[in-house]
């Protein structure tokens, strides 16, 4: 059985849909997908200047998980720059305060106010839930 996706809470989603290289010669490569949670990790660590411990707590993930997400975004950015590939922001496994979920088990849909765990169904408690993309 596939392991259920762990969803990560995002405070500030990216304010762009993507980036595209310009002024280069030749073809642009395949787009690199930047996940919302990767963008958040990069912002917390390199823009806000938080250490990994604080950043992982803010995102509600363990420190090793944070490190993995952070590694991944660094690698993707380098790849996009070096290979002149566009970046596209994709939803990934992120959720926000305004997000709604749907339960695969009882079909209930629910909102997730601040401080509430969205990863379990608000009606039946099932952990088989999916994000309804805004």
């Amino acid at each position: 059985m596939a392991r259920p996706r762990r969803l990560r809470k995002i405070v500030a989603p990216p304010r762009f849909k993507g980036y595209r290289p310009h002024g280069h010669q030749g073809l642009t490569g395949k787009p690199v997908e930047l996940l919302y949670e990767e963008y958040e990790a990069l912002k917390l660590a390199d823009y806000d200047g938080l250490d990994h411990q604080a950043a992982s707590q803010l995102m509600g993930v363990s420190r090793p998980t944070f490190a993995r997400i952070y590694q991944s975004v660094r690698k993707k950015l380098a790849l996009a720059l070096v290979e002149t590939r566009p970046l596209v922001a994709v939803y990934g496994n992120a959720w926000m305060d305004k997000s709604w979920f749907v339960c695969n088990s009882c079909k209930a849909r629910y909102s997730v106010p601040e401080g509430v765990d969205g990863s379990r169904c608000a009606l039946c408690g099932s952990s088989s839930v999916e994000l309804i993309e805004p």
Partner: peptide, 28 residues
């Protein structure tokens, strides 16, 4: 309003009795 006051909304579309839904949240 409910969003603003951080009240969680749960939308159920099935026909059920109050008891059925209550049991479901009690068990969760």
């Amino acid at each position: 309003l409910l969003d603003r006051f951080k009240v969680q909304m749960v939308v159920v579309e099935e026909d059920a009795t109050v008891e059925t839904l209550l049991e479901r949240i009690k068990k969760s």
